[in-house]
Design a binder for these strands. Structure first.
Lengths: 169, 169
DNA sequence: CGATTTGCGTTGCGAATTGCTACTTACCAA
DNA sequence: TTGGTAAGTAGCAATTCGCAACGCAAATCG
């Protein structure tokens, strides 16, 4: 039957790579705190209910993977500033998508604060899937295609195309 | 800028709610497998390198939280079909955002298969943050605002003051 | 029919991870 | 010097993970 059954390991998917760090407990919560303006060990410690050794471990791991950077402050050399790197900032869409999902299905938890367009102060749109030209796409507008088949044929060989909706039913 | 320091617990953020299930190990990988068309216990078991008891536990938990549904097949009552629910399908944007991030910063892992617009077969756009009207936003176009401040006109512009809850989808 | 295989799940146990609490080291301030 | 703060470590209990073996009902085979 289906020829398109893939190994699912990290050789053909960025998801395992992403989860290597962000899949660990507290990673996303630490990141959220960082996005909300926290920068110091004791701040994270107070805001999340995390144990010291775990926080220490996670921060080291996030730094190690280039998601946060660690630099001692010159004016008080006890203090260490943890800041998001570019790589860390790039996780914002994933984090917001997760948060919006949790908010949609959670027990009436209206998230706060809310991320807004600074131009007009209006909250951002829901994170969603869009076509290359920006059109919003729903589950029925989507299909998995083999990478080698992408762009070359438009309506030629459909043998490698799979509708996403067969997942639903 | 100093006023916006929030408790970060699950009372004002959907992220902890989302992580309650999806933060556990293997949850995202199981979901990815489901999105790729796997439906049965032994299929998941073979595709991911997961232990039986863990898979059993995770599937039960995903079902328990309404992310997947479990139904025995009538033609072979040994077989159980695990399928994504609507709630599970709604995790696709978050999963894709994570995957794209992992792919961007991973060791040259071009993900396969690729999600495409079924209308023209072109791969979808990168998951990103957009304004309510669809404009793509960068990190510098964003600001956190208290929920009570959104919708009540800012900068004297009343044309956009309608309370935006779920603009898109 | 009886024997074997298949699909899904459970149990037991050692290993790894987490969490709690106390301790340490470096620094600043009086 | 004394006291307090910031970051990190150490020890130990509790939880979770992972592997292998076992259980069991439903299908399949001879």
């Amino acid at each position: 039957m289906g020829k398109l059954r893939e190994p699912l390991d990290s050789h053909n998917c960025g998801l395992p790579a992403a989860l290597e760090v962000m899949g660990e407990r507290w990673s996303f919560m630490i990141l959220r705190a960082a996005f909300n303006g926290l920068h110091h060990f004791e701040e994270f410690l107070g805001a999340l209910g995390i144990a010291r050794n775990i926080l220490s471990n996670r921060l080291a791991r996030l730094v190690e993977h280039g998601i946060m950077k660690r630099e001692p402050l010159p004016d008080d050399r006890r203090k260490i500033e943890y800041r998001l790197t570019e790589k860390g900032l790039d996780l914002l869409p994933a984090m917001l998508a997760l948060r919006q999902w949790g908010e949609k299905y959670g027990e009436g938890v209206p998230s706060n604060p809310v991320l807004c367009d600074s131009r007009d102060g209006v909250p951002i749109a829901a994170i969603g899937i869009r076509a290359h030209d920006g059109r919003a796409l729903g589950p029925k507008d989507l299909e998995w295609r083999d990478r080698s088949d992408v762009g070359v044929t438009e309506k030629g060989d459909d043998s490698l195309k799979r509708p996403v909706l067969n997942v639903l039913r």
